[in-house]
Structures are given as structure tokens and as C-alpha cells.
Simulated assay, not measured.
Amino acid sequence: MSAVDDEADMCCAACGIKQLDNIKLKNCTACHLVKYCSVECQKNHRKQHKKECKKRMAELRDELLFKQPESSHFGDCPICFVPLSIDINKSALSSCCGVFICDGCSYANQMKDARSKRDPVCPFCRQPYASSNAEAERNAMKLFKAGNLTAIRQKGCEAKIVHNYGRAMELLTKAANMGDAVAHCELANMYGFGGGVEKDTKKAVYHWEEAAIRGNPEARFNLGVNAARNSKFDRAVKHWIIAASQGYDLALEKLTEWYHMGTVRKEDLTSALRAHQAAIDSTKSPQREEAATADRSC
């Protein structure tokens, strides 16, 4: 930064007053590019600054959006601390505590209970498992009323399945406002595909982006599809590479398809293949392999 730029940075962008001991300047809350001495000055300067502000906001949004997430939206199993698979069918939700546990830990706990001939208990909270569907529903309702995020999202998803879209929107919006990636993705799908609500691509993209930022690969894949439909091919490929690196099969299939079309570079596909396999391998454990083998033998 030059001396002139540095001096300008220490002045109010509207009135030009310098920052002194008794005058504190504050950054534009949206872009942080300029400073103001008061809310009034910020309002007065809005017309001149609006275009630059929106451009910088879009750049900041993309920086956040295309940052590789540290893990998937499901995180790690709270028992073995191995990343949970993005395949929800490989985890079990405990109605007693509202926690997702990997199949490996769930199976190991079942075997331990069987050997000790004790009543089955949750491996996380150690409370007895529900003895019936009715009891499991009562447990889930207790969590829901207590404001448990997972329970709220699950109720929203259940409402969507039975086409109670008004209730689904209410609960999924509540869960999304609490930061839930799955809820954001479900809302995006409703807006994007017209599931019970009027299609609204702008709202769909917003919720897909929020879900993707939080590590949801399905939302990331859908962003790629939307980008491709709008001829933003480089953007689509970026999304699919990240989704593939999270172990999302459809993204890898799309990259492979576009490679044969000449749209994706060989080095990008090779990197995505390796990252995809690494993501899958990171969710493996001896206990999970044992559980999968036991399931196949049933």
C-alpha cells in the first residue's frame, strides 16, 4: 500500500475527516474497503460506494464458498472420532440424545450388550434404547421441544416427506437459521425443484451456498449443475472437484463425463479421483468393516 493509499485509508470516505484520538473510524460493515466516521456519512456515501461494495462482497463470498471444507457436514463419530460417511445410511441416529453414531460403533455396542446380556443402551449417552417406535417418538419429541437442532431438522424432513410443506418450511428454516447444512440443502431443493413452494432460483442458490460452505456435498453438486446451466463451466468444475473430494460419487461421475467431452483437464480429474478415494478411505475403520460384513450376512 502506498503512502497516499495508507493516508486515504485513515480518512472518512464521505467527509474526509482524519482519524484522531477523539474520532474513531469504522469499516464499511459489508466490504471493509473504506472507513466512515459516522452512520450518517456511510448513508451519504452509499450511492458512490455501492458498486465497489457489491463487487467486493461477491469476491468475499466466493473466497468463502470455494474454500475446501475441513470435513463433511456430518463431522466425526462422537465415539470413535473417525469422520462419518456422507451416506446417511451408514450412521444411526439415537432418539435418546439426538446424536449420529457410525455403524461401526453402533454394531460394536450391540455385540457388547449381547455378550454381557444387559439391556441395550446408547453408546453415547448410556441411556436405555427405546423399546418401541412409540417410545422412540416420545424421545424425539422431548429433544424437539428442548430445541435440539437435529430433532428440529428431522421433524422438518419428515414433514416434507408427507407433503406437509408449510410445516416443513417452518422447521427447516428454523434449523437453517441455527446453522444446519442439511436444512439449508433441503430448503434449496424445495426452491430449486419446486417441492411444495414456488420455484425461486435465487433463494435456492443462496441455501445451496450456505449448505456447501458448511460442507454439504449434495448442495455443492447442485451448485455445479446450476452453474453449468448458466454456461459458467469453470465455476461448475470447481464445485464438482470439491464435492468429489468429499467422496460424492455424482460429482466424480460428472467430472469424468466432462473429461471425455474435453471440458475437464486430465490433471484435474486425476486429482479429483485421488481426493475422492482419500475421502472414502478416511471414513473406514475395522469396526465399520465388521458391521458392513455382518449386515451382508444377515
Results as ranks from 00 to 15, higher is better:
P123N: 12
L93D: 01
K90N: 10
K145G: 11
K112W: 15
K112A: 14
S91M: 11
A130C: 11
A146I: 10
F144C: 03
K142D: 03
D119C: 13
C97N: 02
C97D: 00
A136H: 08
Y107L: 01
K142S: 12
C96T: 13
C125V: 04
I86M: 03
M111H: 06
C102A: 06
G104M: 02
A134P: 01
N89K: 07
R118A: 12
P123T: 13
C96H: 07
R118P: 03
L143Y: 00
D113F: 13
C102Q: 01
E137S: 09
F124Q: 04
N139D: 02
R118F: 00
S131G: 09
S106Y: 06
L93A: 01
D87L: 05
N133S: 14
S85Q: 08
E135P: 06
C102W: 01
A92Q: 09
A146V: 04
N89P: 04
S131T: 08
T150A: 15
D119R: 12
M111F: 03
M141Y: 04
I101L: 06
I86K: 11
P128Q: 05
M111R: 02
P120E: 10
P120M: 05
S132G: 06
I101V: 15
S95K: 12
V99K: 03
G147I: 04
G104H: 10
D103W: 07
C97T: 06
V121S: 01
A114P: 06
T150Q: 14
C125T: 07
N109F: 04
F100E: 09
G104A: 13
P128V: 09
I86A: 05
Q127W: 04
G104D: 00
S91P: 10
Q110K: 15
I86L: 10
Y107G: 02
N109R: 03
R115E: 15
A92M: 13
A130K: 00
G147F: 09
S91C: 10
C97M: 04
C97E: 00
N148F: 15
D113V: 05
A146K: 04
A134E: 04
A134Q: 14
V121C: 00
K112P: 02
S132R: 00
E135H: 03
R138V: 12
V99D: 06
P128K: 06
Q127H: 07
N148A: 09
P123S: 08
C125S: 01
P128D: 01
D119G: 13
K117A: 13
F100T: 07
S95R: 07
D119I: 14
V121P: 00
F144W: 08
K142V: 14
R126A: 04
A140I: 06
K117I: 11
Y107Q: 03
K145L: 12
M141Q: 15
